[in-house]
Amino acid sequence: MITDENPDAESPKEKEPVKILLAEDDKDDQELFIDALEAADVPSEVTALENGQELVDTLRDKSQPDPDIIFIDVNMPVKGGKQALEEIKGDKELRDIPAVMLSTWDHPADIEDTFDKGADLYVQKPNSFNGFVLVLKKVFFLHWAKALLGPVKNLFFVYEKNISQGDS
């Protein structure tokens, strides 16, 4: 008797990859992000873009499917992350796409500004690979939790030190 069932084959519905747009001008940071996603066991399809203008143009391109989530570096050339965020959240067709801001800075004014502009999370870039893995695990946990709970401002700022304690 011949069957099509292969117990070792992954079911296509087992883990649908998360479609991610990453707007990040630093190639090393792009690679670190992608490697950390893999290490965090987040099945994903990442499209990396160089700046905020490319991000906005890609999102407005109707031939491309909308991503599940976007990650935006705050400081980029051509069009910075905050300006891109403002345009995205001001567009009725794009505003519901979750947006996570990435920055090496943790300046309260930047954090407040991106929150006011509609970002869903603000993540301080970790200094280590393991820190990045932890942060991404938390971001994806918070993202799906937020979909159920609505915006929670005290969960808005994520950085390595506020998640590595007790999350081992």
Score class of each variant (00 low, 15 high):
Phe156Gln: 03
Asp25Tyr: 05
Leu142Thr: 01
Asp26Arg: 05
Val78Arg: 06
Glu31Trp: 03
Ile2His: 12
Val74Ala: 14
Thr3His: 13
Gly90Phe: 06
Ser11Asp: 14
Val78Tyr: 01
Gly52Cys: 11
Ala84Gln: 06
Val133Cys: 07
Tyr159Ser: 04
Ile97Lys: 10
Lys82Met: 14
Glu45Asp: 11
Ala119Met: 00
Thr3Arg: 09
Trp105Asp: 15
Gly52Ser: 11
Leu134Asp: 11
Asp61Ser: 11
Glu50Asp: 13
Lys153Gly: 01
Asn6Phe: 09
Ala119Arg: 00
Pro98Thr: 13
Phe156Glu: 03
Asn154Asp: 15
Leu49Met: 14
Arg60Val: 03
Gly150Phe: 03
Gly131Ser: 09
Ile2Tyr: 08
Phe115Ile: 05
Asp96Arg: 13
Ile72Arg: 02
Gly118Tyr: 02
Gly81Ser: 02
Trp105Phe: 14
Val56Arg: 05
Gln30Asn: 03
Asp110Arg: 03
Leu21Trp: 12
Ile20Glu: 01
Ile88Gln: 01
Glu16Pro: 10
Asp29Leu: 14
Phe115Ser: 08
Glu45Met: 11
Pro17Trp: 01
Lys137Phe: 10
Pro7Val: 13
Asp110Pro: 05
Phe33Glu: 09
Val42Asn: 03
Val18Pro: 02
Glu10Thr: 09
Ala147Phe: 05
Gly52Ala: 10
Leu136His: 03
Glu24Arg: 02
Leu85Tyr: 06
Asp116Ser: 07
Glu31Gln: 12
Lys15Met: 13
Ile34His: 01
Gly166Ala: 06
Met76Leu: 12
Asp120Arg: 08
Gln165Pro: 00
Val100Met: 01
Arg95Glu: 14
Lys82Arg: 07
Phe156Tyr: 15
Asp29Trp: 06
